[in-house]
C-alpha cells in the first residue's frame, strides 16, 4: 500500500490543498463569472437535470417526485421548480413515511409542498402494516427500511404512477453507479441490472406497458459535494438536522444513533449528549449522525471535501449488511 501513496496537491472531490496544507474552496470556482460560452459544472449539471425532468413531464401521463426530505430530494425539488417556472411543478410529491422520521424533516416537507402549491401524497408504512401489506420487525435492530418497498409499490399501483423521480446519485453506491437515468421497473417494481435499456446521448426511452413504470434519476451525475455546492450557490433551504446541533446519542456499530422512541437500546448502549450533524436523512432507527461542529453550509462543504468516508458507509446501517446490500434491495423495488 505504501508504495502507492504519493504526495498530491489534489484533495478529495475538488478542494485544492495548498502547500501549507490549508484547503481552498472550489465553490469560488463555480461562482466565477464565466464570460465565454462555457457553463460552470453546477450549471451544466443543472441543465442536464432540468432536461430530464421536462422529458418526463412531456412524455408520461402520471409522474410523481419521491421526496424523502433529504438534501438530494430537496435539490431535485428545486430543479423541478426551475424546469417549469413560472408555472407550478406539474406533478405531486410522494413521501414514503415510515413513521420513524425526524420531526424537523416532516415539518420541512409540509412547508415546501405548501410553498410550492403542489400536492403531497404520503404513503404510510404504518398504514401498510395496519392493512397487513407489511410486517414490522422486532428487537433492538428493528427497522422499517425494507417495509418501504411494499408501501411504495402499493402507492404506485394505487395512484397509477408511470414515472417516479428519485434523488439517487451514482456516486453513492456501486450498484447505483450502473443504473440508468431512466430505470425500467417491471410489473413487480423490480430492477434487473442485466437487462437495462441502453441510454445514449440525451435520448431517453420511456416506453412502458401497463403496470410497468420508470424510476427517473435526474441527479444521477451529481456527487455529494456537487449537491452541497449547489445548496450553497443557490441558497437552497435545508432542514436543521443537517447542521451541527446538540443531541442525545448512543454508539452502535461505530455509528452514532439518536436516542429515540423507535429504537430499543441494547445492553451497554448508554446515551450521551454530543454535538452532531446528519450527512444523510433516513429513518431514525438506521441513520447515524457524525460528530461535527459544521453549523453553516460553507463549513459542511469543507467537512465533506476533507472527509475520508462515503456518506452511506459512514451513516447507513442498511448498506453495511453485505457487499451487495443495495443491489439486492434495488432489485426488489427499493428507491
Amino acid at each position: 500500500m505504501t508504495t502507492m501513496v504519493t504526495v498530491h496537491r489534489v484533495n478529495a472531490q475538488g478542494l485544492y490543498r495548498n502547500a501549507d496544507g490549508t484547503l481552498e474552496h472550489s465553490v469560488q470556482r463555480s461562482q466565477q463569472a464565466i464570460m465565454s460560452y462555457e457553463l460552470s459544472h453546477l450549471r451544466e449539471l443543472e441543465a442536464e437535470s432540468i432536461h430530464i425532468m421536462r422529458e418526463v413531464a412531456a412524455e408520461f401521463e402520471n409522474p410523481a417526485l419521491m421526496f424523502s426530505g433529504g438534501k438530494d430530494s430537496i435539490v431535485m425539488l428545486r430543479l423541478a421548480e426551475k424546469a417549469f417556472a413560472p408555472a407550478k411543478i406539474p406533478f405531486p410529491m410522494l413521501h414514503v413515511d415510515t413513521g420513524h422520521n425526524f420531526k424537523e424533516v416532516i415539518d420541512f416537507r409540509d412547508k415546501r409542498s405548501a410553498d410550492l402549491g403542489i400536492k403531497l401524497i404520503v404513503a404510510s408504512v404504518q398504514d401498510a402494516v395496519d392493512k397487513g401489506l407489511a410486517q414490522d420487525e422486532t428487537g433492538p435492530r428493528a427497522s422499517r427500511n425494507r417495509l418501504q418497498i411494499p408501501t411504495l409499490l402499493n402507492a404506485i399501483e394505487e395512484h397509477r404512477f408511470d414515472a417516479l423521480f428519485g434523488g439517487a446519485r451514482r456516486d453513492e453506491e456501486k450498484a447505483r453507479a450502473k443504473e440508468r437515468v431512466y430505470s425500467f421497473r417491471d410489473d413487480f417494481g423490480q430492477w434487473d441490472p442485466k437487462a437495462q435499456r441502453p441510454e445514449l446521448w440525451n435520448l431517453y426511452n420511456g416506453r412502458i406497458k401497463q403496470g410497468e413504470h420508470i424510476r427517473v434519476f435526474p441527479i444521477s451525475n451529481w456527487t455529494e459535494l456537487d449537491i452541497w455546492q449547489y445548496i450553497a450557490d443557490d441558497k437552497v433551504e435545508i432542514p436543521a438536522i443537517y447542521f451541527a446541533h446538540q443531541r442525545m446519542v448512543f454508539e452502535r456499530d461505530g455509528m452514532l444513533l439518536a436516542d429515540n422512541e423507535f429504537i430499543e437500546r441494547m445492553e451497554g448502549e448508554e446515551p450521551y449528549e454530543e454535538q452532531v450533524r446528519y450527512r444523510t436523512v433516513g429513518d431514525m432507527t438506521i441513520t447515524g449522525a457524525v460528530e461535527s461542529d459544521a453549523d453553516t453550509v460553507e463549513k459542511i462543504i469543507e467537512e465533506v471535501a476533507a472527509t475520508r468516508q462515503t456518506e452511506r458507509g459512514a451513516t447507513r446501517a442498511d448498506d453495511r449488511s453485505s457487499e451487495a446490500a443495495m443491489e439486492d434491495r434495488k432489485k426488489e423495488g427499493y428507491f
Binding site: L15, R170, K174
Partner: peptide
Amino acid sequence: LRAEREQGITIDVAYRYFATP
C-alpha cells in the same frame, strides 16, 4: 454488480466521478 465481481469482468457501463480544482 455482484456478477461482475464474481466473474472478474465489467459487464455494463459504470459511471465514476472525481474532481480536481
